[in-house]
């Protein structure tokens, strides 16, 4: 399969699943810590559609991160089903789960998780290489994304030479490098100051708005809720509320 057909097929997948991308049905996740059972998620049913910016809110221990891990195929539920398009990702093998992450999911972490021995450009290229075979295409894609996040001038710097905000922008560019359908962001502003956090949120909003990506943003910061097209509140592993937001705020309007 050529890179071109592969990308086209991926776009087709996104279009065909535009109405419903990820569907969680009665999902539970129970951890056993010694003799204690911790029910991190308890019968959660949620559906994520194309182009949504879903803000998942909840206090510590509410199950936000567990939800994100299950959506991204980093973990498997104890009960319930998770469907991507028509596929139950719970039933996938480890290898297929890896391919699912590679083809459809982009991760943005609280602590950026950039590879310290690769420059900003190379970090993005690393992810792009997983999908695109042609090296010219990989390089173009990396530069295009670094330009998008405003870091083309800093492309050849190692992470240690970048500020926290710059590192998170590189991380977003890296997450986008594979052209994923879904961006999963775990406290993307949690390690940043207010102004930088605003910039990152603006970037994420831009990606969902302009590029039609689905973005699931997990945070305990309630101020960010206004940004989402939809806000899901979790408490004790259950969905407390799931509300659509008809008029989301711009990132610049948010304060905390």
């Amino acid at each position: 399969m050529t890179d071109k057909t592969r990308a086209a097929q991926k776009r087709g997948t996104v279009e065909s699943a535009a109405s419903l991308l990820l569907d969680l049905r009665s999902v539970s996740r129970v951890y056993e810590i010694g003799r204690v059972q911790v029910r991190a998620l308890d019968g959660v049913s949620l559906a994520f559609r194309g182009g949504e910016l879903v803000v998942v809110l909840g206090p510590s221990g509410s199950g936000k991160t567990t939800l994100l891990n299950l959506l991204g195929g980093l973990d498997r539920p104890t009960a319930g089903a998770i469907r991507y398009g028509g596929t139950d990702i719970v039933a996938l093998s480890d290898g297929d789960l890896g391919r699912f992450r590679r083809d459809h999911i982009g991760f943005v972490f609280q602590f950026f998780n950039l590879i310290p021995t690769l420059t900003a450009r190379e970090n993005v290229e690393f992810a792009a290489e997983l999908v695109f075979r042609d090296s010219r295409q990989v390089e173009d894609r990396a530069l295009e994304l670094l330009t998008l996040v405003g870091l083309e001038e800093r492309a050849d710097n190692f992470p240690s030479g970048l500020s926290g905000g710059e590192q998170q922008r590189v991380a977003i560019a890296r997450a986008m490098a594979k052209d994923p359908d879904i961006l999963l962001c775990d406290e993307p502003t949690g390690n940043l100051d207010f102004r930088t956090g605003q910039q990152i949120l603006a970037l994420l909003q831009k990606l969902t708005g302009e590029q039609g990506k689905t973005c699931v943003l997990v945070t305990h910061n309630t101020a960010i809720a206004g940004l989402g097209t939809r806000v899901v509140r979790l408490r004790d592993g259950r969905v407390q509320s799931d509300e659509a937001n008809a008029s989301p705020l711009a990132a610049s309007e948010i304060e905390w």
């Binding site: 890896g98 998780n113 992810a127 997983l130």
Partner: peptide, 11 residues
Amino acid sequence: ETATMRTLGAG
């Protein structure tokens, strides 16, 4: 770092 690579989809 290794976990991040694998999370990104590196097999």
